[in-house]
Design a protein around this nucleic acid. Sequence first.
DNA 1: GACTGTGAAGCCATTCACAGCT
DNA 2: AGCTGTGAATGGCTTCACAGTC
Lengths: 212, 212
Amino acid sequence: MKALKIPEATVTRLSVYSRFLKQLDKKGVTTVSSGEIAEGVGVSPAQVRKDLAYFGEFGTRGVGYNVKDLIRYTVKILGLTEEWDMVLVGAGNMGSALVTYREFKDRGFNIMAVFDNDLTKIGKTIADLEVMPLDKMPEVVKEKNVRLGMIAVPSKAAQEVADKFAESGIQGILNFAPTTLNVPEGVEVRNVDLSVKLEILTFNLTIKNQSL
Amino acid sequence: MKALKIPEATVTRLSVYSRFLKQLDKKGVTTVSSGEIAEGVGVSPAQVRKDLAYFGEFGTRGVGYNVKDLIRYTVKILGLTEEWDMVLVGAGNMGSALVTYREFKDRGFNIMAVFDNDLTKIGKTIADLEVMPLDKMPEVVKEKNVRLGMIAVPSKAAQEVADKFAESGIQGILNFAPTTLNVPEGVEVRNVDLSVKLEILTFNLTIKNQSL
DNA sequence: GACTGTGAAGCCATTCACAGCT
DNA sequence: AGCTGTGAATGGCTTCACAGTC
């Protein structure tokens, strides 16, 4: 695998391709062309080929790609050959939604513990997981070598959680709080920013009406 | 306002700036420089100035930007001067989390109705909203001229909901189902793709270890 | 004939660097 | 002196177009 720098957009699409390919496989499709993948996920065929070409030559000219093989390759590239343990901080409505989110299981993500600071939430159970006090988080992370954490707490509390994550050895954070987190070198953050996504829509709808 | 094409990344950042500025305002800060905004949201100062420059000259050389004014401008640009009504389809855990998500209210988004096809969910109440059968959705959307819809149903059901949204006149869709939606011209979709975001993290963590 | 893999071209976004204003 | 606004330069991603292979 090349150490070459890969565009994040390519990684994003690779993940989408991977999921799409699994759907095809379930339907019994054995071979697929870049054009069919492109059609299925809404990108150009050249884009699909370029994206895959970063990592190797997976296809057969004149034929296309073997679906099962390509699934294996994409899963390997994305680092999904092993299951990933995760911890979640925040046992509110969003936290509960995350614990029960089906797609995580399907893609090999396992939320193995949920933490919160709210005394009314500690001790409750969400889908068989008992909510534990946040103080317990570091030891769980260290003991089980958990590398991924999710933050589903109000904005005000998010930075504190991020700090504790970083100290405990968490290397990747998925943040649902609508705020920018500061983390030390070596920790990666990705934000799931719901109102930002909505505001892209309102911007586009507003602009469109103005240019009429 | 220019009809010039604006990069989506710029709109995304504008939304983040806008939120950050409101925080500053709450703290009583009256003036801010591009460098301070940049610092606060994790981008470069030149980027902040370029982004704002698409829409006008909002600052004062040698001084910076007036916080309250800049909030007004960003809110206007993003189309947030009026409240936006939204409908939600899917009354599961994710749907419930969306209904109670605080940030939506803060930014002027109002979920005014929730729909589902599941008989066990119809009639239940989520934060004062009674879950209604999906069939009722079109009339609510048409009657109230709702332009934004959110999809929080399983992948299999998502395309059908998108189709019904499009027919009913919904113009912007925020999709939480992990699948690619096909929509007619004139309807905008943005996906909130949780496992894709996680897979970017696993990719980066995996690559990092390989290049050691 | 069909489809991949890829260098080259084109396009778009970000960064640089400085003139212009306060 | 400090900070914005912006043309120019850079860098990076996407599309094109075609040679290579089955």
